[in-house]
Write a protein that binds this DNA or RNA. Structure first.
Lengths: 334, 334
DNA sequence: GTTAGAGTTAGAAACGATTCTATCCAGAAT
DNA sequence: ATTCTGGATAGAATCGTTTCTAACTCTAAC
């Protein structure tokens, strides 16, 4: 039924080895035989079987990507970066959602390894010792993308979350005669988020403001939670005049929460987001935010992974990409 | 180095066949030997090689998903639906972006087939005869998701785009004392879009309005294009008082384009979108739109594919999922 | 006219599973 | 006691490649 390399060999009067060489572009083939083989490949409609090749060569040209949730605009952008570079290097991606659940994550790593991927790209929330253990004993290289491992043992690509949050908070403090901005984020969820919190705290402390815990709001990360937290902010006795929010989606929720209750952004309250997803420009007022280059993180992470897979020398195993503040209309200009 | 089924067999004093039976849950194994084998698997840390299994069994439990752009909020939602059902049926997904380019699409189908996927899920713009040809001669089943093939030869999952557009347009006409709504969409791009256009035309014609071609705007599908087209609408002599837009993202651009120029939505102009991506609730005013169940389309398509892969009987090869209109604040209520 | 050596090619052994066929063995039936 | 039956198991072929080694061919040099 299906045409195999053997059929081609027989029809072209050469050995399987020669056909294999032709298919794989090995230069040690006489041009005339190459042409002959190519012709019979065409004639028979031969299509190499990547599974058999994978078994024989122990390479699948496939990498596994474990991602919290592909329907999240942040991760889908990241995934696109991964995919584009993967395509460039002739790899395919097996994509799986973990919902950031440790159990799923560990399970998925195992599945990927069974499928003999050549490498793994991991995005997730908390990296536990168990994760590290699995990564270190993995038979193939692993790279973390937008995922923080405090031990720095696993190769990774990130931005400096603490610094970025510090700068954003500082910006709000400066615009506000040294009033403490509120903080809205999902602390517990991930190490990345607690880094943002640390940056926020540092900026506040540095400004000689007496730190007010009441201005810190810990919520699940969603637009609706942002809407809801706006109400709490309004009801506060010491109502803040600015908020630093750890993600754009929540920040937009906060903005609308205020607007829906008759408050104006940025006049009554300034809002600073994080990520610069394309949503940031799709609100009124447009959202000031920390630019985190999602696409690039994915792309660089994939590129880094190819280096490991090719056993190339890697000079910078924990890459920190630049970030910047993009000031738009949800904050006041200096 | 790596532990194979043969190692397990030797250590457990059984044959490879028996180990294979244990691993695959074949009941014809004496409980005591099963236990013994399981123990040595555990002890040696044996992990089955899915590639070898794939070669021997001719099944990879992997399906290919060809998608225009995973970073597009519409498709990422669809992808999540696919993924969830795939996981449920123990399949993994190889995900690739085509950017809706025919050349990429055809190439990707070929790659997927080389990788011996058990089935293909295809999302794309225009299905050409060449596509159909490839699908029909494919060795594995293919299902289209949110992708229209006018010949209805290939299994597919869609909504009734013509009817949905008709209903949305009708709604606008009724709210507007029989004035013709403008149409903003990307006609040429896909068959799906021209179906929407047909629905729009039918609704207008049916209302005994003299059809005005000047109110039809054909643009590339993006937020920025939406912003831009708003200006053109404003400059129109016969300025419309409502617009039907074929996607939410563009619709939101249109809304903001009007707002940025001092016009109010829905008082000055009503806007109706299409898709009900999560963006629709994340604007002010919230966007009235056609609810297209992206997640469900993905999920149902994947489910349908499993049926074909299992050679189950399929009664409904071209599934049409229900849609509905969700009226929010960008249109006037009756 | 040998021979060396480079360039080509053939042959066969992996790769690590599944699966078909055959064998073995125990207990039931006669 | 012998035969029969069916559940367990073993053995070996197979899946479709890659890749190693050996051998062959041809030309150039001596």
């Amino acid at each position: 039924m299906t045409v195999t390399i053997y059929d081609v060999a027989r029809e072209a009067n050469v050995s399987m080895a020669t056909v294999s060489r032709v298919v794989n572009g090995n230069p040690n083939v006489k041009p005339t035989t190459r042409k002959k083989v190519l012709a019979t490949i065409e004639r028979l409609g031969y299509r190499p079987n990547a599974v058999a090749r994978g078994l024989a060569s122990k390479k699948t040209t496939t990498v596994g990507a474990i991602i919290p949730d592909i329907s999240n605009i942040f991760f889908s952008e990241l995934a696109r970066g991964i995919e584009d570079i993967a395509t460039m290097y002739k790899y395919n991606i097996i994509l799986s959602n973990s919902d950031s659940k440790k159990e799923n994550e560990l399970q998925l790593i195992n599945t990927m390894l069974e499928k003999q991927v050549d490498g793994i790209l991991f995005m997730g929330g908390n990296i536990t010792d168990e994760h590290i253990q699995q990564f270190k004993t993995s038979s193939v290289p692993v790279v973390l993308a937008a995922t923080y491992d405090s031990s720095n043992e696993i190769p990774s690509v990130n931005i400096d979350y603490e610094l970025a949050a510090y700068e954003a908070t500082k910006e709000l403090v400066n615009n506000n005669e040294n009033k403490q901005p509120a903080f809205v984020g999902s602390l517990r969820e991930t190490v990345v988020n607690s880094l943002k919190y640390e940056g926020y705290v540092r900026a506040v402390r540095e400004s000689n403001i007496e730190f007010n815990e009441d201005l810190v709001f810990t919520i699940d990360s969603s637009y609706d939670e942002g809407l809801a937290v706006a109400e709490k902010l309004i009801e506060l006795d010491s109502k803040p005049s600015s908020v630093f929010v750890t993600s754009d989606e929540v920040a937009i929720g906060v903005i609308h929460g205020f607007q829906d209750r008759g408050h104006n952004v940025p006049e009554d309250i300034q809002v600073f987001g994080f990520d610069n997803t394309k949503l940031a420009k799709m609100v009124r007022p447009t959202l000031s935010t920390v630019v985190q280059p999602m696409y690039d993180i994915g792309a660089v992470a994939m590129r880094l992974l190819t280096k490991y897979m090719n056993k190339e020398e890697v000079t910078d195993k924990n890459v920190v990409l630049p970030h910047r503040l993009e000031k738009r209309d949800s904050t006041l200009s200096d």
